[in-house]
């Protein structure tokens, strides 16, 4: 990979100042960015590590929500939210592999918005709020397509707040080599309705399946979605699965997630 300058500030303000340079990029756990740089798909002149900023780390459990610092690793979320938000903890505990989970962070995952990443599904289905150094962004306004988000230049995620649903589950079908989701479905049942977010399937990245949400809000059971279908048009297609396969898989996994959520 091309060489770069490495800086490791200890406050958000210092990080933002370092990122003012056009050729600077933030580095969180690096589990996606470093492989991308090795392939020379990305060549920043300066990398600004966010892992020296203690204010970005840690998990806080409130009465009806949990707040996760952007630089909190998947392993920490898996461990510390097992009781407060088990579906989210389980999702975090199945990202990648143990070594990846010890480095990768929630802020990095959401900022990257890989179309097959797990966290975007949790954030969108939970109706999470992405908090940055500038503002609070509701999940419904945050995800803008494959690798695209509402984040602006110089804007970094500081924390993410998840409302805790009455019932929730995430089910993914792993692409066995990459362990990314070939399709993954997060179902969250709240008092005022059900939210369903699907990752891994669409060319537009994570999306809400509103038809399933309506059906499940009236009848929270796998049968409620068994007669529905997702349009394969706009689904990703590659050697691992056709668009039709992914559309069908996402529907089947939605039913499984509902069953798992109970």
């Amino acid at each position: 990979m091309y060489n770069f300058d490495f800086v490791k500030p200890s406050t958000v303000e210092e990080a933002v100042a370092a990122l003012a340079d056009d050729e600077a990029q933030p580095l969180s756990g690096g589990q996606t960015l470093i492989p991308t740089m090795k392939q020379r798909l990305n060549a920043p002149e300066t990398l600004v590590s966010l892992l020296g900023i203690e204010a970005l780390k840690g998990v806080t459990v409130g009465g009806d929500s949990v707040t996760i610092g952007a630089a909190t690793t998947h392993a920490t979320v898996a461990k510390e939210l097992a009781e407060a938000y088990p579906a989210l903890a389980a999702l975090a505990g199945n990202i990648g592999d143990p070594a990846v989970r010890n480095r990768g962070t929630i802020g990095g995952s959401l900022a990257n918005n890989d179309p097959a990443a797990c966290y975007p599904a949790a954030a969108l289905a939970s109706g999470a709020t992405v908090v940055t150094n500038r503002r609070e962004i509701p999940a419904d306004a945050y995800f803008e397509g494959m690798f695209a988000t509402a984040l602006e230049e110089g804007e970094i995620i500081t924390r993410v707040t998840f409302p805790i649903p009455d019932a929730a589950a995430y089910v993914k079908f792993e692409q066995p080599a990459s362990r990314f989701a070939l399709a993954g479905v997060f179902v969250a049942k709240f008092a005022d309705g059900v939210r369903v977010a699907i990752t891994g399937a669409s060319e537009e990245g994570v999306f809400r399946w509103s038809e399933a949400e309506e059906a499940l809000s009236g009848n929270f059971s796998a049968e409620a979605v068994s007669g529905l279908s997702l349009d394969p048009d706009g689904m990703m297609a590659d050697l691992h699965g056709s668009a039709e396969y992914r559309a069908h898989l996402a529907k089947v996994l939605t039913g499984r997630a509902v069953t798992a959520a109970g």
Binding site: G30, A75, A99, V100, R103
Partner: peptide
């Protein structure tokens, strides 16, 4: 913590 040393600077 267990990490992959090829994916950390």
């Amino acid at each position: 913590k267990q990490v992959k040393s090829c994916t950390m600077f």
